[in-house]
Amino acid sequence: MRQLRQTVERGREAYQTVRYPDDLAAQVLGGRRSWRWVLPMGGLAAAAAAVVITLWPQRPVSTPRPSQPIATVTTPAHQTPDSLLAMPSMPQLPDGIDLMPKYQALSPRLGAMNFPSYPGFPSRDFESVQSTSTTREAV
């Protein structure tokens, strides 16, 4: 036990002699700005970004001018530029065909809407029925 204590004690003395070999503050804070400057710099950056975003749509659209001359394309002799750009004609429908049916075709004509008469139903008056049968028996 005593030997262990002595060993640990001497180990502590050796441990305490160890020093950091560099300047930690210079290493860590060397490229580090003070926090005081962070907020103002951040505010300025935000304001600049806002100005850029505000002004961006108002910039005139300019087409880039090529620095090199554009190579010309020669077309064959039998093709004129107009024929190259001409669109084919739209397909034509033959005459006499309506795209939409006329309104008369959707509904029958008024004269053709004749409904048959309502069917007759027997009367539910029992007295008249009984009187009729009595008359027949009497006959």
Binding site: A25, L29, R36
Partner: peptide
């Protein structure tokens, strides 16, 4: 805490050796 660099430097110089001993150990 307020971000004063001199104060931060003083603290780091004071603590760098105990940190290094601990990390090395």
């Amino acid at each position: 805490r307020r971000g004063e660099r001199d104060a931060q430097s003083r603290l780091l110089r004071q603590l760098q050796d105990p940190w290094y001993r601990m990390c090395l150990g």
